[in-house]
Amino acid sequence: MLKVGDKPVGALEIDSDGATSVVADTSGAAATITVNSEDTLTGLLRGHLPPIVMELRGRTRIAGDARFALQVLYGLQAGSPWAATAESRGA
C-alpha cells in the first residue's frame, strides 16, 4: 500500500513475472510505504530516489514486511515502468 501522509493513494501490484502497476484496491498489501509528499512518491516509483536515503531523512516510513518493501523499491530502481515517462518529461 502507498500512503502520502495519512492518505492511502493505492497499492503497487506486482505480478509473478515482475510486471508492476498501481491499483486502487489496497486490501491484502504485504507492506505499507508511507511517504511525506507526492514528489517523494513519484521519485520512488520512477526508481530515481535512493530508498535508504529517503528513509534516513524521514521522507518514507515502511510498515509490515520491510524486506519485501525494500525489494520492491530496489526493483523499481532496476526497471520502473514509470522511469521512461519521467525521463521524457525531464524529471
Binding site: 511525506n36 528513509e55 534516513l56 531523512r57 524521514g58 518514507t60 516510513r61
Partner: peptide, 10 residues
Amino acid sequence: RATGRPSAIS
C-alpha cells in the same frame, strides 16, 4: 535511551 530513526512523516 537513543532514538534511532524516528519518523518525520507527520
